[in-house]
Amino acid sequence: MSRAGGTAAVERAAEETETGTEAGPPAARPLRVRNLTKRFGGLTAVDGASFDVEEGSLTGLIGPNGAGKSTTFDCITGVRRPDGGSVHLYGEEITGLPPYAVAERGLVRTFQIARELKEMTVIENVMLAPKDQRGERLWRSVLPGPRRAVIEQERELRERAWETLEFFEIDHLAEEYAGNLSGGQRKLLELARALLTDPHVLLLDEPLAGVNPVLEEKLLGRIHDLRAEGYTFLLVEHDMDVIMNNCERVIVMHQGRVIADDAPAAIMEDERVIDAYLGANV
């Protein structure tokens, strides 16, 4: 069953593209990726990947090193322009939109190598995140009248920022330059920042790397809480235990292709997955 299920999902996704099932009203899935392709010179980093992410799910995306997971994230979020294929967010095509437009529509990602804003303090980093801040308009942040509303909103945001920092247990670092944080702390900061944008869908690229086990447990708990509130997660993670214990579905990539897409238990037994990992010496 396991084997059949995995193959079925891949084939279903592929079939839809070919037969143009998209013509009908697309099931408003949070994320729907079809035939995504990205080439770097001669290397095809993502090779016709197709998959869906279900509403309110915690879906894992795994694969050996260099499988194309981060590049897939880059193409979904507009950091890189895909060479082919499409990405839909809740039924709306977002292929090739610039990153800010993707983020504005509620899809936010974190980076595998944390990209903290080094010369800004931790709290400045998180205060940057919230969407549609009044004071992001130049004139509003300057003119005396409108400025009052800006200050009021800044107070609210400050409150949320502190709460978020407390949750991630980095509030004691609030006024530290982000560049002075440890690797794990940067990951937390990045996650905190992403959450403060009020996203619907979060793509997390190895968010637990370098985070201590206690906090890891807590983070996963928080992710489950958020999922219960309706957030949707796509999680790249190398720790199989984490994936198997937390995700209800796992997508496996290898050499740019999706080779399996199934429940964790089934994935564990999928021969192609095992081959892929063995072949890559992992």
């Binding site: 610039p98 800010y100 983020a103 504005e104 990209r115 940057l128 995140a129």
Partner: peptide, 17 residues
């Protein structure tokens, strides 16, 4: 400031830099 530090981060957080 975010643009100065890392423009891609600002863009990924929804800012039309």
């Amino acid at each position: 400031k975010a643009i100065r530090e890392d423009e891609l981060v600002a863009r990924s957080l929804g800012k039309d830099t």
